[in-house]
């Protein structure tokens, strides 16, 4: 006999019943709807996991951090207010905290080892978490840009074409290309402000 426990977990990962956008997921998450946990995981686990890999340098610790972030996000969801901030922003705050914890534990361990060996403490090589998280967040947001913005941004950022070159290549008015660039930059900037490391 199917129980609720079974039915909750049998919901396929790709089913999005009434999920229309990120903020709807955030509101349902805040309300304690467990399908929203799964939806949030589908949407943002790669962001959390990749940021963690890049910040701590290995997949096993990143997997532990990802699990801890989603578990604590769910358990402490009363501390999240969908009206005040984005859910990915909050998940990234938790991720940065876990990454900081990881390095603190590591530093403690290294100090203990070195105290035992009677050598001067040498701080572990902490990766500058903020800048790697920024890059992961930006890579994610670039993926989400629709065309023609995405194509324009790729040409401008990575092919170093000027906006007039892009305009003639894509056969678009120069003013249109410029405003696409401006809108994309602003979108990326806002995303960094919310989810990035440099808060």
């Amino acid at each position: 006999m199917a129980t609720a426990a079974a039915s909750v977990h049998l919901v396929p990962m790709n089913v999005e019943s009434d999920i229309s956008d990120d903020s709807a997921v955030a509101r349902r998450f805040q309300a304690g709807d467990d399908t929203a946990l799964e939806a949030a995981y589908q949407r943002w686990s790669a962001l959390v996991y990749t940021s963690a890999i890049r910040a701590v340098g290995n997949e096993a610790d990143a997997a532990d951090i990802t699990q801890a972030v989603f578990v604590s996000a769910w358990q402490s969801r009363s501390g999240f207010d969908a009206a005040k901030g984005s859910l990915p922003g909050w998940l990234m705050t938790l991720t940065r905290r876990r990454i900081a914890d990881h390095w603190r534990d590591r530093a403690r361990h290294v100090r203990r080892v070195e105290a035992a060996a009677q050598v001067e403490p040498d701080e572990p090589e902490e990766i500058a978490a903020d800048s790697v998280i920024d890059r992961v967040v930006l890579a994610d947001e670039l993926e989400r840009l629709g065309d023609p913005q995405r194509r324009i941004v790729e040409l401008a950022f990575f092919q170093d074409l000027t906006h007039t070159q892009i305009a003639s290549l894509l056969n678009l008015p120069v003013g249109t290309v410029k405003s696409h660039i401006r809108r994309s930059l602003e979108r990326l900037r806002r995303r960094l402000e919310v989810d990035g490391g440099a808060l």
Binding site: S45, R135, E143
Partner: peptide, 22 residues
Amino acid sequence: VVSSARSITPDDHLVAPPPSVW
């Protein structure tokens, strides 16, 4: 933003966690 975006490396592209995490 531009400088950060231009420093994106292939390693920065999102990868999904293994199923064991969920």
